[in-house]
Nucleic acid binder design. Structure first.
Length: 707
DNA sequence: ATCGGTGATG
């Protein structure tokens, strides 16, 4: 068996007895990433739609589905764990149902009573819910099948639909059919009433009313919207048990369920199973796949989607393009996103707001200022649609690229507009721009404007503002902003704590105490730890280790390294160098600094790009201590040593390189910054060894921990 | 007007 699926609870649809015929995928069991071979088995000869001489598949399969359902399975039977093979394995391979959309011409079009009923529906929708039951009785025409359907279709909200449906059932004027349940469920789904939908589905089972693809896909998508993914999968399995084949809609709905659960392997297996049984995936299925691979950052997966569409002769539509562009951005391929966008426009598909939002975001993250600004220009020239999310994304892009004037112009545009008024996102983007550019006064003007205009400050805006006030050493303003923010409902998160912590690290005396008091309101344990490591009493290494571990494990992953960096800075700035070395060691131990040291035959490198100034200095000292011992022991060394601080692509990035350079200078270490490679400091073995030998033997601080 | 897919921050 070629399948190699690591997660057992697969839908039975995924594990047919003849699965091994169609598995061009190689799915590493221990790897979430899905490796996709570039060749897939050719689609099997179509046993499906398009063959005019044979009966339609729906007809072929009808006996199977109706007999299974008319056996009136009870609830326990229906919901029991399905078997892992097809209901009837001796039958030839089951095929996908082809979709037959219902014609536009509605069954009501020849109904002469339609006008009356429309008015009546409006009356029902407008009346108080308490009066609803009484109003129903005034129905102008008898509730025939068609009349009832028309009304059921136009009722809202779900409470009324449900009451009306019960009323129709009570009239006993005609037998209830599947469509009545489907229409009612649609209204319930609109109100996210999964419990009610499930109850209706069970009622259908009980009464022997067949559930069809429309019923199942409505149930499944409702569960999905209610985030009840297990329920969605469960009902898909139930569908399998009855022997009903999924149609295109059900396929894409279920693929989306698995995709949203992050079950890439299941999605691909189901996709392959569907393909093997004659399903021709459409744009919607490909949009689902593209999004899934984007979420996984899986570029091979994205290529697979493009290739599949090509081989099936399907042109991407707008939504597919949007999903693919987004996915390419998440997979870190801005250049490919750009060329796909050009291809899209050339093929005659006009971008919408979502397309442009995706691209602007990609260009901003890639720091492609020229492309971003050109696209913005093109948007205006072509009259491409703009909405407030796109506006806010443009502002964030300006923040990423340091385009202050452009952002100000945009923000003014928004102020003057009717439908794109600046909201808390817009203000946050501006606070980010002024905050990272150090323009405290403008940031504070915005802050006051927000409270006057009733725009709520959010946690990110608060973080930007506090960062800015901290750098400007306006500690009293910082304390006041923090207080106002918390009182107005901002709940400090780990990033805000990291920001406060960094302000603590470069403040002294009274200022540091004030900021630490803010931090204490947000994170008691962290503030206490700061007091411990910088206070008079000197706790043991083991105590520090345990407490740091406790704090870091309850901290969001993206804030852990910043925490550790700041804590190291705090120690250094308060003359606790040994403790700084301990913290760097612990940070390395807990995996916060992967790839700090890289070694090749020719060169050993210290990578400090993601370290704070103090942490980088500590790491350099630690490394020099280690090398000194290696020299003492006369072990072999490579010809070249280097330390990389990175150059900081961001316009506002503070100069780690500069601080590192002055530290190197202070130590008189023989590192020099490379020509043309800012942030890369190199030293030859000869220079470094003679410098190390000229120094006093390594101190206790630098010998405490070795790598 | 009985079923499915796309966008936002440090």
């Amino acid at each position: 068996m070629a399948t190699n699926l690591s997660t057992p609870p697969l839908s039975p649809y995924l594990s047919s007895h003849n699965h091994h015929h169609h598995c061009p995928l190689r799915l590493p069991a221990n790897n979430k990433r899905c490796t996709i071979s570039s060749k897939r088995a050719p689609a099997p000869p179509s046993a499906v739609a398009g063959e005019q001489h044979s009966p339609s598949l729906a007809e072929q399969l009808k006996p199977l589905s109706t007999t299974t359902l008319s056996d009136q399975p009870n609830e326990a039977q229906l919901l029991s764990k399905p078997k892992s093979t097809w209901v009837n394995p001796t039958k030839s391979k089951p095929s996908v149902l082809s979709l037959q959309r219902h014609k536009r011409s509605s069954p009501y079009s020849h109904n002469p009573q339609i006008k009356d009923l429309r008015n009546f529906a409006k009356k029902l929708n407008d009346c108080e819910e308490s009066a609803f039951s009484d109003v129903i009785e005034k129905i102008p025409h008898p509730p025939t099948r068609e009349n009832a359907l028309l009304l059921l279709n136009s009722l809202r909200p779900w409470q009324k639909t449900l009451i009306f449906f019960d009323w129709v059932k009570a009239q006993n004027a005609f037998p209830m059919e599947t469509i009545f349940y489907n229409v009612t469920m649609k209204s319930l789904r609109f109100g996210r009433q999964f419990q009610h939908i499930e109850a209706l589905a069970l009622e259908m089972v009980e009464k022997g009313i067949p559930l069809d693809n429309i019923t199942y896909s409505t149930i499944i998508t409702c569960a999905k919207r209610c985030n009840l993914f297990d329920k969605a999968v469960e009902w898909f399995e139930t569908m399998y048990k009855t022997g009903l084949m999924p149609d295109e809609v059900t396929y894409s709905a279920v693929l989306d369920v698995y995709a949203k659960l992050g079950k890439v392997e299941e999605v691909m297996s189901l996709y392959e199973r569907g393909r093997a049984s004659g399903w021709k995936p459409d744009e919607i299925a490909f949009a689902v796949l593209a999004k899934m691979f984007g979420e996984a950052g899986d570029y091979d997966g994205i290529k697979y989607v493009l290739q599949e569409m090509k081989s099936l002769g399907i042109q991407p539509n707008l939504v597919v393009y949007n999903s693919l562009l987004e996915a390419l951005g998440k997979a870190g391929k801005p250049g490919l996103a750009r060329s796909l966008f050009e291809e899209m426009v050339e093929s005659g598909v006009s971008p919408n707001e979502k397309t442009l939002t995706a691209l602007i975001k990609i260009y901003g993250k890639a720091r492609w200022a020229r492309d971003a600004l050109q696209l913005w220009e093109r948007m205006r020239l072509n009259g491409w649609p703009v909405d407030f999310i796109l506006y806010n994304t443009l502002l964030s892009m300006c923040a990423d690229l340091g385009l202050v004037e452009e952002a100000e112009a945009l923000f003014e545009d928004m102020r003057g507009s009717e439908k794109c008024r600046p909201d808390s996102w817009s203000y946050t983007a501006m606070l980010n721009i002024y905050g990272s550019g150090g323009n405290v006064d403008k940031a504070m003007v915005l802050f006051r404007e927000m409270s006057e205009g009733g725009v709520q400050l959010n946690v990110m805006g608060c973080t930007c503002l506090i960062q800015c006030l901290g750098r400007a050493k306006r500690v009293d303003d910082l304390v006041s902003v923090f207080g106002i923010a918390v009182e107005s409902g901002v709940r400090p998160d780990d990033r805000l704590c990291g920001c406060l912590l960094s302000v603590v690290s470069y403040c002294e005396g009274e200022d540091a105490s004030k900021v630490l008091a803010c931090l204490e309101r947000a994170n008691v344990a962290l503030a206490a730890f700061v007091r411990v490591i910088s206070g008079e009493e000197s706790p043991s290494f083991d105590v520090v280790k345990e407490e740091l571990k406790r704090i870091l494990s309850s901290t969001a992953v993206e804030a852990r390294r910043p925490f550790c960096n700041c804590l190291i800075d705090i120690c250094r700035n308060r003359g606790r160098h040994e403790r700084a070395h301990e913290l760097l060691y612990l940070g390395t131990l807990y995996g916060l600094y992967p790839g700090l040291h890289t070694k090749t035959e020719e060169e050993w490198r210290l990578n400090v790009r993601s370290l704070s100034v103090g942490a980088a200095q500590t790491a350099l000292e630690e490394w020099m201590g280690t090398l000194a011992r290696i020299v003492q022991r006369r072990e072999s060394l490579p010809a070249l040593f280097s330390a990389n601080t990175g150059s900081g692509n961001h316009k506002f990035s503070q100069g780690l390189g500069g601080a590192f350079a002055s530290h190197v200078e202070k130590l008189a270490a023989p590192f020099t910054e490379s020509e043309g490679k800012p942030g890369l400091f190199t030293a030859t073995r000869e220079d470094l060894v003679s410098w190390l030998q000229s120094r006093a033997p390594p101190s206790a601080a630098t010998t405490a921990f070795t790598n």
